[in-house]
Design a protein around this nucleic acid. Structure first.
Lengths: 130, 130
DNA sequence: TTCATCTATTGACAAATTGCACATAGTGTG
DNA sequence: CACACTATGTGCAATTTGTCAATAGATGAA
């Protein structure tokens, strides 16, 4: 079953683990430089986050602003559209990003442990379960 | 608003990414041999899943049974308690586990990419954002 | 016996999260 | 004006997760 092993719970769009990537990815992008939501939406593809509904990004940014990780101001420059809100990362955001990185490291270690356990079991049992 | 936005990013208990680990971890444990819920609850510590509320495991097992990944029967053996339900992995469960492993590999790659991007940016910018 | 305690499973509901459909709004084009 | 494109935001239903409490058998102590 491609994309959904099962019937009851097909993840629409990206998988949940992917979405958990959203906050750290946004923080990293903003650490590279201030940007507005629509741009971030496109840049997120770099981290495998494609086809996200814009509202997801805007909500994430607003939530991060509530937590003090980013700040926003209205863009002065003239654009081909309505005024844009420009986000910048804060010092607290830097800390949060560093925390996320640590957290992701732990997750990676856990995955590595899991994989090792899986492969070892597969070798021993020749792929058969008892 | 049902889901308040004031939350810190400290999840109670395990992080959500951890919990996403539950299904693959249960499948791997069951691939090693049939078991009942209460035992699995203890064995999950191996994969960093500690202090889980039992109902979480039982619900996960029931959901997996709905998907055909596992089957269960009542244990014949006498125990120090009420009858126990014993779970075994199915062929579909083997496939699901293999899928999970692939999925976890992808996630790990993504994390590695993210980390590399983070470190590279930090080196270049000497830890300062512009 | 009655009570507490441990093992074991389950049900119900609240809380948190996510997806999606739609609303709003400025700008340029024919 | 009608339309398309850029850009942000709101509201709500659906899904997922966390927590609490109910049930229930076995065992041992008072």
């Amino acid at each position: 079953m491609p994309g959904g092993r099962g019937h009851r719970w097909r993840w629409r769009g990206c998988s949940r683990r992917m979405v958990r990537f959203l906050d750290p990815a946004l923080l990293l992008l903003l650490h590279r430089g201030r940007a507005h939501g629509y741009t971030l939406l496109e840049q997120l593809a770099e981290f495998g986050l494609e086809n996200l509904n814009p509202s997801v990004i805007y909500r994430a940014l607003r939530d991060m602003e509530d937590r003090g990780w980013v700040t926003s101001t209205w863009d002065e420059e003239q654009t081909q559209g309505p005024p844009r809100r420009v986000y910048s990362i804060t010092a607290a955001g830097d800390d949060a990003l560093a925390q996320w990185v640590q957290d992701l490291e732990e997750t990676r270690d856990l995955i590595n442990y899991f994989m090792a356990a899986y492969e070892q079991h597969m070798e021993e049992g020749e792929g058969e379960h008892h």
